[in-house]
Every structure is written in C-alpha cells, then in structure tokens.
Design a protein around this nucleic acid. Structure first.
Lengths: 159, 159
DNA sequence: TAAACTCGACAACATGGTTGACGAAACAGT
DNA sequence: ACTGTTTCGTCAACCATGTTGTCGAGTTTA
C-alpha cells in the first residue's frame, strides 16, 4: 500500500507523547517540591492552590474554577487545611461565605512551583532549542480551545 | 530588569498547554466513540483495553503494563467485563491464570479509536502544518524519558 | 415582608487507586 | 518425591477524588 495512506506515526502516539511530557514535568516538579520541604503536596493539590490564588477564594468559587462541584472543592480544601496550606476565615460581610486563604506555607509552595517550572522550561529550551520550544507552544495554542484553561485535571478521567 | 531573566512565557504555561492538548484529543476521541456506539467507555478504560491488546493478557500482566497493582487491574477488568468489552477465560496450561480477552465489542472500540486518532492527527497536521507537527513529536520524544510509556494515567494524580 | 437564590455542610455512593492476607497452582532444589 | 518459594487471582479494608441530593442559614430581590 502507498505510504501516504498511513501517517508516518500512528495517530495514537501524539496524545501519548503529550501526556508523557506533561507528566514528566509534573513529576519533576513534585520531586523538587518534596526536596524543598513539601513532600505531601500532590498534583491535584497544586491545581487547587492555583485556583485559590493569592487573593483567596470561596469553596464554591474554587469549584467553578476547577470545573468540579462545590462539595468536591470543599473536600479538597479540607485536606489542604489539614496539611496547613490553607485556612478558612469567616467573611464579615457575608455570613454564608468562608474565604479560603493561603497560609504562608501555601504561598511558599506556589512561589517554589513557579520557580521550578521556569527552571524546567529553561531546561527544555536548552534541550530542544528555544526557538523550537516557542514554536511548539504556539502550535499547541492553536489546537487548544481558547476558552481559558480548565484546571480540572483529576477526576476528568473518571466518571 | 532585563527581559532575558524572565522567560517570554512563564514556565507554568507549557505544562498547561501540554495537558490541555492531551485532554482535547482524548475528549474528542470519546465524543466520537460515544457517537459510534460506545458512550460508556471512559479514558481509563481505553488505556486498560490498550494494555490488554489483541493477544489478551492476565490481570497481573495488565497491572504491570499500567504500572498499577494487580488488584486494581482486576477491578478495572471487572468493570470492563460488566460492560461487555472483555471476558475472562481459564488458561488450560496454567490453572492459576485467567486470560483476559477482548470481546468483538472490545476489538471494535480499539479499532475505532485507532481510526479516530489518525483523523485527529491529520486534522492537527492541517491546522499547524505537517512539518511542524512532526517536529513537535520529535521534540517531545527528546524530553520524555525513553524507558517506554507508562500508561498509568488515572490514579497517578491522586494518593 | 416574602420568595428566590447562594453558601457551606452532611450523607450516600461510584471509581480508581492502595496494602495486606490467603488458598491454589506451578516451579525449583535437594 | 517432597518441600519451600513464587505467582495468580481474589477478598477485605481503606483512601482520595469525584458525583447527586438535601438542608439550614444568610443574602438578595421583587
């Protein structure tokens, strides 16, 4: 058969490469974080902490940002609070709301994550070339729906 | 400060792009599969079916291929069997083993997945250019550890 | 003031993982 | 040929992360 009817690489390879590289980055991030005093943070927690941000957020808002239910967000907040990364503070203006705020430890892990990601990015740039890496990012942007990132990484696989 | 000390894009953007594009592909795959008579297959199932393959495999072997415990593999096989995608058959030569085999329905979903992935690959090639896509795959290969793909997508985020 | 909405919490459940235990079958060494 | 070790599948208990439904309390709106 003519080779033009078959792609040079089977189509299923690309998603595997995308996932493997994503996973490689996240694994290296958490290996670094573990060495820097945050051994218990899991990938899922990182996304939740990002969703909370320096300004804090309510559980319902976190759920909206992550694309999960407010109940699920509340449970994740419970675990983060138990680990000392966030704290609930009552809202004086709205008796229903409880604002989730990052503790200094939570801020620390976010700051370290940003640094580590920059280092990993620089490492990849030197491996595959700054130009090619930038081109890859551009290419990926053009195939990803533009309506903002949805951060609901976990759970999306199940149910 | 000089802009050279700051990457053009913050480092955390790249992993988000990688995940978003992986997710986009998988979501589109399953949207297509749902239309083609497989509405109940979830991403996690797809990986397990791939691990089983046309030759079949035992639960322990599936666990090894996916990087999960044989017990977890057994539970996933239970669900796949309940949905009619696989069947357990006793091994005549080894009384301990039970070979997991794809049913015709299981083979069908694998075949359709391969086709859909090829279509998606072609679509991306026409969007971002065949050359650039091939270059991207090459670049990704060079930053992903070479020791084979680990397919344990679910669960890796948790625990 | 009354109705409607939003918030956080509780309960019950599904799914995809984990570890530990255990009997049955196969294998390896004396 | 027996015995000890390994492997296979399964059961049980548990954890993490989701889901839906419910509900009281507080806020907003008509």
């Amino acid at each position: 058969m003519p080779e033009s009817s078959e792609p040079a690489t089977p189509g299923f390879v690309l998603p595997l490469l995308l996932f493997a590289s994503f996973r490689t980055m996240i694994d290296r991030l958490h290996a670094e974080l573990a060495e820097q005093g945050h051994p218990d943070v899991r990938p899922a927690h990182g996304f939740a902490l990002q969703a909370i941000g320096l300004d804090g957020a309510t559980a319902s808002e976190i759920g909206r940002r992550l694309g999960i239910s407010k109940q699920a967000a509340g449970k994740t907040v419970d675990r983060l609070a138990a680990m000392g990364y966030v704290a609930r503070v009552d809202d004086a203006e709205d008796g229903r709301r409880k604002l989730i705020r990052l503790t200094p430890r939570g801020i620390d892990v976010l700051a370290r994550s940003a640094l580590i990601f920059d280092e990993l990015h620089a490492e990849w740039a030197s491996t595959i070339g700054e130009r090619r890496l930038a081109d890859m990012e551009t290419a990926l942007r053009s195939v990803v729906p533009t309506d903002g990132f949805r951060l609901d990484v976990p759970g999306w696989l199940g149910t």
